[in-house]
Simulated assay, not measured.
Amino acid sequence: MASSSHYHYHYNINDDADLEVPFEEFFTNNPIPEPKERKKRIFIERNREDGNTMLWNDYFSETPTYPHNLFRRRFRMNKSLFLSIVHRLSTEVEYFRPTQDAVGRSSLSPLQKCTAAICQLAYGGGADTVDEYVRLGETTAAKCLHHFTAAIIHLFGDQYLRQPTPEDLQRLLQIGEERGFPGMVGSIDCMHWKWKNCPSTWKGMYSRGTRKPTLVLEAVASYDLWIWHAFFGAPGTMNDLNILDRSPVFDDIINGIAPEVNFYVNGREYNLAYYLTDGIYPK
């Protein structure tokens, strides 16, 4: 067994003069490259305080420039709902909390960050579309969108991203019966969303004839505009029946775990609820 002692080797380069030539030739013919100068990040002073002031005066002050109906159309939600979302994000999510930098300058406000995220979601535009109004850059706007969607799922997922409970189902059945549709728990339909940046190789699969490529969203909604089911991403060339076959909307019925609902129509008893659809679906 070898001992743990250290061995020291000494080699004198002068003992073999031939080794000196290759080293000299190598460093002469292949000089060590000088390190590249790091490109400085471009900073644009956007005066974010002015953007926050203008946003507040336009939509959120006591006498806003634009009334509630324009807010609803542009933000795709009521002002009270938007402010409640902003309040929860600014108090429970670190990224949206107001801060100050080392010199005491305020950061982007929660209103600016949430507005940037909402504009990207509502209109599907690029991250730099809100640069001139909200006063934040493309990278920051994309980061706002990422944190916004993650926070919404974290804070509101248990309440909104779920299947209907027995209490929800009973309420939907009662409302449906009051409106003349006993046993109806919601409306189902498919809608096409334009895919602006669809790859050229996929365009034929997602287009119908000469139309632009689209993605299909299948959704089940109740009278109060709650979305109880969503299946998104099917190619635009598919029709509603093909998508219905792909989506998991009837998996509970197939697996025998769907809740039983008893109601009568024209003297005949039914034990399964139904979705209200348009005329292309089979009876």
Rank of each mutant, 00 (worst) to 15 (best):
L108W: 12
K113T: 08
G125A: 12
V103N: 01
S90E: 10
H87L: 13
Y123K: 13
P64V: 08
E94W: 00
L111T: 05
P67T: 08
L70H: 06
R105I: 00
F71I: 05
F82C: 04
F82S: 02
A122I: 04
A117R: 01
Q120H: 08
F96S: 09
L55W: 03
P67C: 07
R76K: 15
M77W: 10
R74Y: 14
S80D: 12
M77D: 06
G124L: 01
Y59Q: 07
Y123H: 07
A117L: 08
F75L: 04
T115H: 11
T91D: 05
A117V: 11
A122V: 10
L111Y: 10
I85V: 14
T53F: 05
Y59I: 03
G126Q: 14
W56A: 03
S107C: 03
C119R: 15
F82A: 01
I85M: 11
E132G: 11
E132F: 00
Q100G: 01
T99P: 00
L89I: 13
I85D: 00
Y59A: 06
F75I: 00
K79C: 06
V130Y: 00
R73A: 11
P110C: 07
T129Y: 07
S90Y: 03
R88D: 14
A127N: 14
T99L: 03
F60G: 05
S106L: 08
K113C: 06
D58Y: 04
V130W: 07
R97M: 10
T53K: 15
P64Y: 13
L89C: 12
T63M: 12
G126Y: 09
F60D: 02
T91M: 07
N52L: 10
D131Y: 05
S84D: 05
M77G: 12
P64F: 09
V86A: 04
N57Y: 10
L111M: 07
L55E: 09
N78P: 03
R97V: 06
P110W: 02
P98H: 02
P98D: 04
H87Y: 05
D58M: 11
N57K: 13
R74N: 11
P98W: 06
L83T: 04
G124E: 01
N57E: 09
V103Q: 02
L111E: 13
T91H: 03
R76A: 08
S61I: 03
R105F: 00
G51P: 02
L70G: 05
M54Q: 14
E132S: 12
L70D: 07
R73T: 03
S80L: 10
E94S: 15
M77N: 03
F82I: 10
A102K: 02
Y59K: 06
G124C: 05
T53G: 14
W56Y: 15
S80I: 09
P67V: 01
T115G: 04
Q112I: 06
P67Q: 06
R76T: 08
R73F: 12
L89H: 08
Q112A: 11
F71H: 12
N57W: 04
